[in-house]
Amino acid sequence: MEKEQMSDRRKFIFDMARGVGIAALGGFVWSAFIDEAKASQLLLRPPGALKEKDFLRTCIKCGLCVEACPYDTLVLARPGDHRPLGTPFFLPRDVPCYMCPDIPCVPVCPSGALDKKSVSTEGHLNIKSAQMGLAVVDQESCIAFWGIQCDACYRACPILGEAITIEYSKNERTGKHAFMIPIVHSGACTGCGLCEHACVTQKASIHILPREVAMGKAGDHYIKGWDKKDEKRLENAKEIKTTTEISKKSAIDSLNSGMKDLY
């Protein structure tokens, strides 16, 4: 009897250990799969979406935003779409976001993954404050850069004159024409994609990228010295000090030492 009890307990412990082992293996595979599946960066989310990391954990994949969109802009990622499954996104070359003034897709979101506040100014919904992405022009394939008049994207832009402007410069090749170059301004562009949708080239020469992908960042060490407001950023700048063989001595010593301290 005694012996049997012992072996029962051992069996239980063994079973538990085996369970934990299998679970760990399963968890590893599961995590690896998720890591792979969520890695697709080039994804345009509906207006008002949280930062991608928070969006992924907050969106419950109900599709209410998709149902609310009158233009069928938004779609939920299906298996085989190679995008985080069940989450809403849009492909502007197919259907862009038409920037509805009442933004019906946002207030219906039950989870807060689409945040009303982020697309409101002074308490009112304002689609112009949306930041779905940023339009980027490929200068090589955009025919305006060849000297051909186009401005299709400019005309399509709901905030033309702010989000896209046309810059004129002389076409030296012909000597009598002007280049009419589309320039996108990240401060105003919402990433709606109407420009990408309208672009006349075979594959769009202006296309929308997620803002984190398309935009750089100057950092606090580069300041517009002529702009009082921008100069304030200097206060955030932290000193960075790198010490190399040369900078150990004073600069004058280094200059007078021939090449010795370099080698």
């Binding site: 998720i34 599946a37 954990r57 994949k61």
Partner: peptide
């Protein structure tokens, strides 16, 4: 897995 990956894990599959 949800806690580690920072998203609802079963909903993903």
């Amino acid at each position: 897995v949800s806690a580690i990956m920072g998203l609802a894990a079963f909903e993903f599959i």
